[in-house]
Structures are given as structure tokens and as C-alpha cells.
């Protein structure tokens, strides 16, 4: 190898190192901070100096944060269940049945996924008040449908369109109804796509902020993002950075683990939306 090639190699790995450090440093630093207490919090440490669980105790023994975590899990799970249930049947119809206006319908669904959430905020606020759902988990489960459903339908439709025709034809010859085809023939083949879209919908619901902030009004009904945003000290000067970082780590670690386990599926799901088609 000549000198130029070696230099190129070094430059390449330096670039890789910069990308990796820039990506993970903030999360690393949040973890370091979450273990620091007292004066340790107010000196800049590049390496962990303390291993103190006091911040975690503060957050988890707090009156409302465990409740907020429960709310988030419940809301995100129900959102996923509804989105998948509605999307599986709908995407079967969109992918496998020819009918007039199918292209238009698909475009409409895509358009809904582009809606700015603020544009429906006033109308949803009224609807939720009208249905008596304000300040309940159902308000969020209902409103999260606007961003989980179009995405789920879109991805499942592209996935189902690629399934071989022969399977379905064999089922039709055997006299299977569309409902049987979906539940007995397609559903077992759909698992990978369901896991991907379900996970992405879960993450979307877990992270959502605008609706969660607007449609809840008491500490016990908040989801974790709102709870973290609202964690505050006695005054502006006393922001409790230790507990905030501990809470942040608590809500992020499960997500990071999920994402790392399913990374291939997630990448496939993200790209199926637009690029592959």
C-alpha cells in the first residue's frame, strides 16, 4: 500500500469515529450526569466520577413519574393495537382488490400523513371535549391515530402487494372468503411487517408531545415526554438536572434497546414508506 492509500484509510476511519462520537456522546453524557449528585452535578466531567442512584430514586419514588410511565406504555400499546387492527384489513383491500379510485385513496392516505398536527389541534380539541375524553388516555389514543394509521396502512399495503398472487389464488379456489384469506393466509406471512410498523407506531406514540401537552391537564394523566418537559425546581435557577437526566435515561433505554434489536426491520420499514414503493 502506498502512502496515499494509507492516508485515505486513516481519514476514512477518522470520519467514522467523528460520526460515532457525535451520535452517541449526548446520550453518554446524559447517563454520566444522571449518576452525579450534589456538587458533582456542577462540575464538567468527561468520564463518570460518581455512581450514585439518588436521582433515579428521586424520580421513581416521586408521586407521579411511575404513573406517567404507565400512561405512556398503555397509550402507546393501545395506539399500536388500533392502528394494526384497522390497517391490516384496509391494506388488504388496497393491495389485493382492484376497484375504482384506489390510487386516489392511497394518495389521500399519504396526504393525511403529511398533515401538520397543529392544523387539526383546534378541531380535535373540540371533538375530545365533546366526547368527554379530555384529560384521559383515550384522548391521546384517538388523536395518535392521525399519524400512526396512514403510515401503517401505507407500509402494509406495499408489503402485501409484493406477496405472490399464487397463494391467494389457491385460497380462492378452495373457496376462502376475503376474511379467511386475511386471517389464515396473509396474517402469518405479514408478521415481519407487523412487527416493524407496530414498533414504529409505538415509538411515534411514546415520543409524541404536542397532543399530549394539549389534551392532558393534570400531573397523573401526563405521558413521560410532557412529565420530563415539566420537571422543574422551585425557580428558573434551580432546574433539577440530575432527576431530569435520570428520567430521560429511564424512558430512552428501552427504546434504544428495542431499536438496536430490530434495527434491520426498522430501517426496512422506514424506507418502505417512500423510497421503495
Amino acid at each position: 500500500m502506498n502512502v496515499q492509500a494509507v492516508a485515505g484509510r486513516i481519514a476514512f476511519y477518522a470520519l467514522v469515529a467523528v460520526i460515532v462520537v457525535f451520535s452517541i456522546f449526548p446520550f453518554y453524557y446524559a447517563i454520566v450526569t444522571s449518576f452525579a449528585t450534589g456538587t458533582g452535578l456542577f462540575e464538567v466531567n468527561y468520564w463518570p466520577r460518581q455512581f450514585n442512584l439518588a436521582n433515579y430514586e428521586t424520580v421513581l419514588s416521586g408521586r407521579t413519574f411511575p404513573r406517567n410511565i404507565f400512561n405512556s406504555i398503555f397509550i402507546a400499546t393501545m395506539t399500536v393495537v388500533f392502528a394494526l387492527f384497522l390497517a391490516v384489513t384496509a391494506s388488504y383491500a388496497l393491495a389485493r382488490v382492484r376497484f375504482r379510485g384506489r390510487g386516489l385513496l392511497l394518495m389521500t392516505i399519504l396526504a393525511v400523513s403529511m398533515f401538520p398536527q397543529i392544523a387539526v389541534l383546534a378541531g380535535l380539541f373540540e371533538l375530545i371535549r365533546f366526547l368527554g375524553l379530555f384529560n384521559t388516555p383515550w384522548a391521546l389514543i384517538l388523536s395518535y391515530t392521525i399519524f400512526t394509521l396512514p403510515f401503517t396502512v401505507w407500509v402494509l399495503t406495499t408489503f402485501m402487494r409484493d406477496l405472490p398472487v399464487e397463494i391467494e389464488e389457491a385460497a380462492i379456489v378452495d373457496g376462502a372468503t376475503p376474511w379467511v384469506i386475511i386471517t389464515r393466509v396473509f396474517l402469518p406471512l405479514l408478521w415481519p411487517a407487523l412487527v416493524t410498523t407496530g414498533l414504529l407506531a409505538f415509538i411515534g406514540a411514546w415520543n409524541e408531545f404536542l397532543f399530549a401537552l394539549t389534551f392532558t391537564s393534570s400531573e397523573t394523566t401526563r405521558t413521560t415526554p410532557v412529565a420530563i418537559a415539566m420537571l422543574s425546581g422551585a425557580s428558573q435557577q434551580e432546574i433539577p438536572w440530575g432527576p431530569i437526566m435520570a428520567a430521560s435515561v429511564i424512558v430512552t433505554v428501552p427504546l434504544v434497546i428495542l431499536v438496536l434489536i430490530f434495527q434491520r426491520k426498522i430501517v426496512a420499514g422506514l424506507t418502505a414508506g417512500g423510497v421503495k414503493g
Binding site: 460520526i19 460515532v20 451520535s23 452517541i24 449526548p26 446520550f27 453524557y29 446524559a30 415509538i203 411514546w206 415520543n207 408531545f209 413521560t224 415526554p225 410532557v226 420530563i228 418537559a229 431530569i244 437526566m245 430521560s248 424512558v251 430512552t252 427504546l255 434504544v256 428495542l258 431499536v259 438496536l260 434495527q263 426498522i266
Partner: peptide
């Protein structure tokens, strides 16, 4: 590694 920032909730990254 680059998936980690994407997985972190926006509110958490704002606070971090």
C-alpha cells in the same frame, strides 16, 4: 450508533 439519536424522544434530546 447512528440509530441512537433517532430513537431518543425529541423532548429527551431537547433536555439533554
Amino acid at each position: 450508533a447512528i440509530l441512537i439519536p433517532w430513537a431518543i424522544p425529541t423532548i429527551v434530546s431537547a433536555k439533554m
